[in-house]
Nucleic acid binder design. Structure first.
Lengths: 178, 178
DNA sequence: GCATTAAACGGATACTTCATCCGCTTTGTG
DNA sequence: CACAAAGCGGATGAAGTATCCGTTTAATGC
């Protein structure tokens, strides 16, 4: 059996490196081909769609999110745990412009991404459940709603300055209490 | 001097009518030409860009927003006035998918739109000012921040169901209190 | 009515962007 | 070193975008 070929690994890295210098919302596969000196065919074989590339770019951030989720879940105080989880999620989504799309997409390109997302959502559910039974959040709030709210806050911060991040998060945290 | 020609008025209405049947985020000027039976040149003369068309489509909603703003500002209780203003803004933005872009755009196509937006923001500023001096909202919150938060909530609601609108608004209203 | 002309109309067409296909090249293995 | 299997490249066709200009039409003045 044949391992991953060295030229393919090199091409892949060249594409990812070039893509990291761009805004994920305006990525153009043909442009990356020109910038890297690779053929368009090569770029499209590695990443058949822009979303496949965005997902590959976001994978490191996703792993970081999983790790921070675990840490948040280990926090004894349920309300602190939830706040910590939400702050991490918001910070990472602001740092990685493609993460929101990856988190919300129902179709993951790779099993690694699917499994990592699964763990993050499971942890999130547990943290919210604990906060709920402590009476620290509104009883009717679901994980999906909170996820959407974080995406909304991300959007709001992007409309203004990154400095709005913390005040907006505080407003959300204050607002979700019973 | 020549008034607006009747054929031009008819073409304009045909385009607007056809455009209203579509999602404002996926409007295609060439498609509208085909659907209306008009030439592409005609469509592009009336609306040189998609944004020009979106703005024309949103104008009625914008007028409605201005009227509801005036009503909210007439409310004696400052906190109720602010809540009323924000609820109207959210509802209208959810009803008109192009309104957010029109409100946030710094470049308005027509003077009517510019003037209407100016009045809405002036009213909004006055309502927020009054709520602030009543101690009904956080002292450091600006009009821009609140505007962005409403856009964020709109985004969050669009990610889920319209039924999330009221709970999300409640969370925001609770969160912006001191 | 009819002539005049400014304005509007239409759609061919040039330009840009997107994604595939397939002949050629490179890599790793026996 | 031969020979698959995998990867590479870029010409190319399909799709979308927007302009230009010759033709038509509506309003106005006589």
């Amino acid at each position: 059996m044949m391992a991953i070929r060295s030229d393919a690994a090199r091409s892949r890295e060249r594409i990812l490196t070039a893509a990291r210098e761009q805004d994920s919302s305006t990525l153009r596969l043909n442009d990356l081909a020109r910038e890297t000196g690779l053929g368009v065919g090569t770029v499209y074989r590695h990443f058949p769609t822009v979303h496949a590339l965005v997902e590959a770019l976001a994978y490191d951030t996703l792993i970081r999110m999983r790790d921070l989720s675990r840490e948040a879940a280990a926090e004894p105080d349920a309300e602190v745990a939830l706040a910590s989880f939400l702050r991490s999620a918001l910070d990472l989504q602001l740092a990685d412009g493609g993460l929101q799309a990856v988190l919300l997409s129902p179709d993951d390109e790779t099993d690694d991404v699917r499994e990592t997302k699964r763990e993050i959502f499971a942890t999130f559910t547990a943290v919210l459940e604990r906060a709920r039974s402590d009476g620290a959040v509104r009883a009717d709030l679901t994980v999906e709603q909170l996820e959407h709210l974080i995406c909304g806050i991300e959007h709001a911060v992007r409309l203004g300055s990154p400095a709005d991040s913390e005040p907006f998060l505080q407003i959300m945290l204050a607002g979700i209490r019973p």
